[in-house]
Structure formats: structure tokens, C-alpha cells
Computed example of a mutant assay.
Amino acid sequence: MSEHNISATSRKDEGKGASRRLRHAGLIPAVIYGGEAAPQSIQLEHEKTWLASQHEWFYSSILDLNVDGKVQKVLLRDLQRHPFKQILMHIDFQRVDENKALRTAVPLHFVNEDKSPAGKSAEVVVTHELNEVVVECLPKDLPEFIEIDLSDLAVGAIVHLSDLKLPAGVSIPELKLGKEHDLAVVIAKHGKEEAEAAAPAAAEVPASKVTKKDQK
């Protein structure tokens, strides 16, 4: 598990007015919650945090959040963006207990698709049904992503959740709910099959009823 450091400072002013002032000053209002400690209001530098938010790890990894010189292990739980400006409006972080299992979404990375029998065929459409998966593990075992090697993907093949190779100590809670929860992750179909599945079935047009009035 890689280390990712984020710096912040504590704040006492709260409310919409205080948040607006922070944003005008190039800062982001945020809060840390969870664990045995009380929720804590903090602020982060917008420019540095914006750059961090462009990376995948910001959303799926455990972050070392340094608040006033004290480091806390946290996960990003919510991020509010401005509707059309490149501005982060508010962030929620959740404290992580290193001795307790956690559940969080982890991105899927697909590799070697172009080298596979399905990927080499111009007549085959390969679809990624999922781009992330919720895993359960101790914080120390949390992967930044799960890699799916598609080098052997055959035409007509389906890769399910149960086919994923997980790191030690990592499980997928969805699979504990039954076979019907073993979702498809990747599907390789002939383009013709894909088109037929997408096209609506031709409906039979019933013959119009002829009334006595029409026969006159």
C-alpha cells in the first residue's frame, strides 16, 4: 500500500458564510469524522488538493492526512464540486481504524485486452460492465486497484467477479450473497450479436378491425 500525504489545518469558523470566505481565499472547507474522536472541521489548500484529486489514488487509497502536524489515516467519503467551475466545494474524510476491516470501492484496471483472441478480432465487441468493485479488507491490505489480465479472453467469454484475482486478505462482499450476485465484469461478444441485442424486436402489427360502418 503506497503512502499518499495530504496537508490540512484545523478551523473553528463554520457555516455557509465561513465556507464562502475560505473558498475566496483559495481554501476548501472539509470535515473528518468517524472513530472514537469527535468530528473535526479542517481546511485544505485548493490548488494542491485539486492536483491530488486528478489522481485515481485520491478516491480509493488510504490517505495520510496531516492536520496541524498530526497525521490521521483517512478515506475520502464525499467530494462536492462546483457545477461548472473547476472548484472543489467541500470534502468529507472518514477516519480509518487500522485494526478493523473496511469496505470501499477499488478501481479495476484492464490489461492486455488488445493481445487477446477477442481483442484481436475486428468482429468482436469487448465491454467493461464494471469499472470498480467494492472490497473488504484490513486497511493495510487495501489495494489501489485490481488488475484484470485479459490476454486469454476468448470470443464469447464472460469474466465474472468470482474470476478476479484478489490480493491476500481482500474479499468481495457481493459474492457472499449468492451466485446471482456474481456479476459480469467483462463480456466479449460478436458485433452482430451486440447489434441484434440492441435492436428492438419487430412487433407484429395486428390487423385492423373492419366495422360494419367501414363496409358501407
Rank of each mutant, 00 (worst) to 15 (best):
D64C: 04
F84W: 11
L76R: 04
R81Y: 10
L108V: 05
Q86W: 04
M89W: 03
Q86N: 14
V74E: 07
K100R: 15
K85R: 14
H82Q: 09
F93C: 05
R77M: 09
I87M: 12
N99D: 15
A101V: 05
I62C: 11
T104N: 10
V96Y: 00
K100A: 15
I91M: 04
F110G: 02
V111G: 03
K70W: 06
L75G: 00
T104W: 05
A105I: 12
L88V: 00
H109T: 13
S61I: 05
V71T: 15
P83F: 04
L88S: 01
K73R: 14
T104R: 09
K85H: 09
D92S: 06
Q80M: 11
R103K: 14
V96C: 05
H82I: 01
L108M: 06
V71F: 07
F84S: 09
Q80P: 01
K73C: 12
H90L: 06
R81V: 08
K70V: 13
H90R: 01
Q80A: 12
E98P: 02
I62Y: 03
H82Y: 00
P107E: 09
S61Q: 12
H82V: 06
H90Q: 03
F93E: 11
V71Y: 05
Q94M: 14
V106I: 15
R77I: 04
F93V: 03
Q72E: 15
L76C: 15
L108K: 01
K100H: 13
I87V: 14
D64I: 04
V67L: 03
A101Q: 13
N66V: 13
V106M: 04
R77T: 12
L63D: 13
T104L: 11
Q86T: 08
R77S: 11
T104S: 07
